[in-house]
Design a protein around this nucleic acid. Structure first.
Length: 443
DNA sequence: GTTGAGCGTT
């Protein structure tokens, strides 16, 4: 036992990362075996992050880290050291650079935010003991919270839902891109019905033509991140010479349309992505493959899915429902036939790092043969015999239609919602799991 | 006091 623990420590170096320079907010995240840190690993914990920096103790200057091929490199050959690393977010940086004088900074911020309309968000299913202070405190991890209203009835008793508002659109998007567990309850955060349609939907997605075969989703992400926060990348596999990149800011997307860019020595063309009609007549809508629960078949999974499924992205669709995952339901929904890599990646994005097996060594490390047999963290995958003996389908991780064909048995036939699947062994379920996965409804 | 889908002025 002790051996295993030290073995793990040897394999994965953890570095301390915070969204700001406040060390109390720091999260330890694992590097790869070669000493680099995957941007996707960073993004899994800090949605929207596009880089890392740290304060050089010698001259107090902030130093940025080198990013190449989706990998962040340690500041020196000696490695990561004991620095507290801080996330870099594209939007915040842009704003900082524009806010040169204090007297017009507010106006500029306002003008900027006007383009990226912030909406109130409804929070459903809040714990009864929530207070406006506690909710504000929770959501501040995604950015400045400017309003919290918990709804009460005439007697003054809390109705279990409320509204919040962030100062920036980027913060709002970060909050919408995640599941939220507050005091042990899964809380739904959405755009309120009353606001639906109010937010003008300029396309955030662009079409990237003339891609070469060596361009991975991570390549596109890395390249286009310099124009703004990238929330989704899709590169079809097998190779089809195009891709899609989705930006947080629709204006960034629009500004790039019509331009040619050079990536990996090749010229690609950026143009507007034709809005896709989500119906069965559209050939890009592959219901057989992805199910019919709003997954549009044209997106990669979130970061962590890495390149095996053609993508490297945050959750582009805002809520888990859009991935065909019902966070509050009992077990998988009826159309649960997403490739597991996508699900795992989505859950990883949502902070369920435990889903990916020990040490968060999930899809990033998985090859085409699925999770490691005796995983490189020294533990079996969930100790679940059904999994390890029969393994995943042969064409694992390739977005393949065989997945639900269940040719190797065991996948859809048990262990999903019988209460002893994921959380049963090895502690690999979601932390404090009382969610639908174990078929235990919230109370 | 109890509760758990929903959609905000009081």
């Amino acid at each position: 036992m002790n051996n295993k623990e030290s073995y793990n420590d040897d394999l994965f170096q953890y570095i301390k990362v915070s969204e700001d320079e406040d060390e109390s907010n720091a999260v330890e995240i694992p590097c790869e075996l070669n000493g680099t840190l995957l941007l996707s690993t960073l993004v899994a914990q800090f949605p929207g992050a596009c880089g890392l920096k740290f304060r050089n103790p010698e001259n107090k200057c902030v130093r940025g880290l080198r990013l190449s091929d989706g990998k962040l490199h340690p500041p020196t050959e000696a490695g990561w050291g004991k620095h507290l690393y801080t996330c870099v977010f594209p939007k915040e940086n842009k704003r900082k650079m524009e806010d040169v004088s204090p007297e017009n900074s507010a106006a500029k911020t306002k003008r900027l935010e006007k383009k990226l309309i912030c909406s109130d968000l409804i929070c459903l299913g809040l714990p009864w003991k929530s207070t406006e202070e506690s909710i504000k405190q929770y959501f501040e991890q995604f950015g400045e919270v400017v309003m919290v209203q918990l709804k009460k009835d005439k007697n003054g008793s809390f109705k279990g839902f409320g509204f919040i508002r962030f100062a920036t659109y980027a913060s709002q998007m970060r909050a919408l891109a995640q599941r939220h567990n507050i005091d042990g309850r899964w809380v739904d955060v959405r755009i309120p019905n009353s606001k639906e349609g109010v937010v003008p939907q300029m396309p955030c997605k662009v079409f990237v033509g003339r891609c070469t075969e060596d361009m991975t989703a991570d390549d596109l992400r890395e390249y286009f991140s310099k124009f703004g926060e990238v929330t989704d990348v899709f590169v079809p596999r097998p190779f089809r010479a195009f891709g899609f990149v989705t930006f947080l800011d629709p204006e960034v997307a629009q500004s790039l349309c019509g331009e040619d860019h050079v990536i990996k020595g090749a010229s690609v063309s950026v143009s507007s992505a034709a809005p896709k009609i989500k119906n069965k007549n559209n050939p890009t809508w592959k219901e057989e493959q992805y199910g019919s629960n709003s997954w549009d078949g044209n997106h990669s999974g979130p970061s962590g899915g890495s390149t095996n499924n053609g993508g490297s992205s945050n959750i582009d669709s805002l809520n888990m429902q859009n991935l065909g995952i019902n966070p509050n339901g009992g077990g998988p929904p009826p159309n649960f036939n997403l490739p597991i890599s996508l699900v795992a990646a989505a859950l990883n994005q949502a902070g369920w790092s435990g889903f990916l097996g020990p040490n968060n060594s999930g899809p990033n490390n998985w090859g085409q043969n699925g999770p490691p047999q005796n995983s490189n963290s020294g533990k079996n995958w969930n100790n679940n015999p059904n999994w390890n003996q029969n393994g995943p389908p042969p064409s694992w991780n390739q977005g393949n239609p065989n997945w639900n064909g269940n040719k190797n048995g065991n996948w859809n036939q048990g262990n999903w919602s019988n209460g002893q699947g994921w959380g049963g062994n090895g502690g690999s379920g979601p932390a404090g799991s009382n969610s639908g996965w174990n078929n235990k409804p919230q109370t």
